[in-house]
Amino acid sequence: MKRRKNIKTVIYHGSIWIIGLLMIYPIFWTIASSLKPENEIFRNSASLIPSIFKWENYAQGWQGFGGLSFSTFFLNSGFVTTMVVIGTLFSSALVAFGFARVKFRFRTPLFVCMIITLMLPSQVTLIPQYILFHNLGWVNTYMPLIVPAFIGGTPFFIFLMIQFIRGIPHELDEAAYMDGCSTFGIFWRVILPLTTPALATVAIFSFYWTWDDFMTPLIYLNDTKLYTVALGLQMFSDPSSVSAWGPMFAMSVASILPQLLIFMFFQKYLVEGITAGGVKG
């Protein structure tokens, strides 16, 4: 019996590692390229071992552009992303509770409106939106990046939270109500703790999407001192003449690190959901 269990464990871990290698091959490739001299990145590019380790790629990449280093970009990204994550957690939890638990009139049509906004490609609303933000004086500030998060600009998260809240048994609300809890009290003390796994998911996604997005900052930020990491990465590449590939890969690797850290930090709340969600079905 014990032996069979051992074999099972070996198969489990073994197969996960083999598929896992496929999953992270691109990371290895990126790391390898970030250490290669320029003339090896595209020649014999399948090789994962650089002939010499060119650490200067990292130094050169971090140096940035004309005295504006990646320290600035990382700080900027850190600020913007933190604000967006906070805003998204705040707005998506609140709005989702409203849709999922409060039976107000027009809630279905409003919900439909929200889902519909997801279906219009952003390319065609970009220009009117720019003009709007320009008239508000928000161009070249972080407002167009941050404010939408606070006002539920990503219905994806709201919908996600709605689905999770709908999965929580009603008896809990009712019991809390009997104990004299207000609606907000129910939200704050009963529902919110139970949605920890969902909130962790929202945090991970909103972090990654914001960190990775270069289009919005590119359109709305003019002053290079305000630029984010994703924009910094894009500034290495110019297919019409020369691109700085080595430094670009180096900074790509650097840019992945915070995302990994955030993921590892929040994923433990995914697990903690077990105990918190340990309510009867």
Binding site: F65, G66, L126, I127, Y130, I131, H134, V139, F214, M215, L218, I219, N222, D223, T224, L231, Q234, M235, F236, S237, D238, P239, S240
Partner: peptide, 30 residues
């Protein structure tokens, strides 16, 4: 004030700024 970027997205930014009446004074053109 220098506003520079890579190639990706450059033309959207220019087009958007043109539509918004907010073009820079000097523009690198292709």
């Amino acid at each position: 004030s220098a506003e520079f970027s890579g190639w990706d997205g450059y033309w959207e930014k220019i087009a958007t700024q043109a539509a918004g009446g907010n073009l820079p004074d000097i523009i690198q053109m292709d």
